[in-house]
Computed example of a mutant assay.
Amino acid sequence: MPRTAPTGGGPAQARADALTAEYAAIWAYGVIGVHLADDDRRAARSAEAAHRSRRDALILQLSTGGGQVPADRAGYALPYPVTDRASAVKLAVEIEERTAGHWRAALPHSTGADRNQALAALTDCALRATRWRRAAGVSPITIPFPGRPV
């Protein structure tokens, strides 16, 4: 997964960057889910479904608004090997934090319904990251200002 910062070049670019982050999140949850069981696996499936829903909404929004729809990649490089539950949950936290960062970057470039969409996505990512931190036994389980670069 590339550690790229959101570019923030206007509303369409901010949404395109968020779409790229959603693509990566969907791909990552395919890897994450393989290493989880029971409630964790259900949470990963739910997270993947949420990211798919946001992806679909962004594709529709960008394509009907005349914006460029960035293409998904066939695969993404993981920041570290995912070989067990611990590394899978760690990646889930990281994915949600990164995706939150892209949605946070979209906020200053949006108004009205677009701003509500970005804020809802940021909130959803922050909540999922908190749940994954709790599952990982990480303390603190919440962070101030979700999506903000560390």
Rank of each mutant, 00 (worst) to 15 (best):
132 W>E: 03
110 S>T: 13
115 R>G: 10
108 P>A: 00
113 A>C: 10
138 V>W: 05
135 A>P: 00
127 L>F: 11
107 L>Y: 11
115 R>D: 07
121 A>S: 10
118 A>E: 00
138 V>K: 01
130 T>K: 00
130 T>N: 02
106 A>V: 13
134 R>F: 12
108 P>M: 01
114 D>S: 09
130 T>D: 03
137 G>V: 07
132 W>I: 07
134 R>K: 10
132 W>N: 00
131 R>T: 07
128 R>Y: 04
105 A>H: 07
105 A>K: 05
110 S>C: 13
121 A>M: 09
119 L>G: 11
137 G>S: 04
120 A>C: 10
128 R>T: 01
127 L>D: 11
127 L>V: 14
107 L>M: 15
138 V>Q: 06
110 S>D: 11
128 R>E: 02
109 H>N: 09
137 G>D: 01
105 A>M: 07
120 A>M: 12
134 R>C: 10
138 V>G: 00
114 D>H: 03
121 A>G: 05
124 D>T: 14
127 L>H: 09
116 N>W: 08
122 L>D: 06
111 T>I: 14
124 D>S: 14
130 T>W: 05
116 N>D: 13
122 L>I: 08
131 R>A: 09
124 D>V: 12
123 T>R: 08
130 T>C: 08
127 L>N: 12
108 P>F: 05
138 V>L: 11
129 A>K: 00
114 D>W: 05
132 W>Y: 10
129 A>N: 02
131 R>V: 04
113 A>Q: 12
128 R>L: 15
135 A>K: 00
134 R>A: 15
129 A>P: 01
111 T>Y: 11
116 N>K: 11
123 T>K: 06
132 W>M: 02
122 L>E: 03
135 A>R: 02
105 A>Y: 04
110 S>L: 15
127 L>S: 09
125 C>N: 12
124 D>Y: 09
119 L>H: 07
127 L>M: 14
105 A>F: 10
138 V>E: 08
114 D>P: 02
130 T>Q: 11
128 R>M: 08
108 P>W: 04
129 A>Q: 04
109 H>F: 15
127 L>G: 04
131 R>S: 08
126 A>D: 06
115 R>L: 15
120 A>E: 12
115 R>P: 11
129 A>T: 07
110 S>E: 14
137 G>L: 02
110 S>A: 14
122 L>T: 03
129 A>M: 08
111 T>N: 09
118 A>N: 06
115 R>Y: 13
109 H>W: 13
131 R>L: 08
112 G>I: 12
122 L>N: 02
133 R>M: 10
128 R>C: 05
133 R>W: 04
105 A>C: 12
120 A>I: 13
135 A>C: 00
116 N>Q: 14
129 A>F: 00
123 T>G: 04
135 A>G: 00
106 A>S: 12
137 G>Q: 01
135 A>N: 00
108 P>V: 06
124 D>L: 15
136 A>G: 09
114 D>F: 01
132 W>P: 01
120 A>P: 05
110 S>N: 06
112 G>N: 07
136 A>H: 05
117 Q>W: 13
111 T>C: 11
123 T>Y: 10
136 A>F: 07
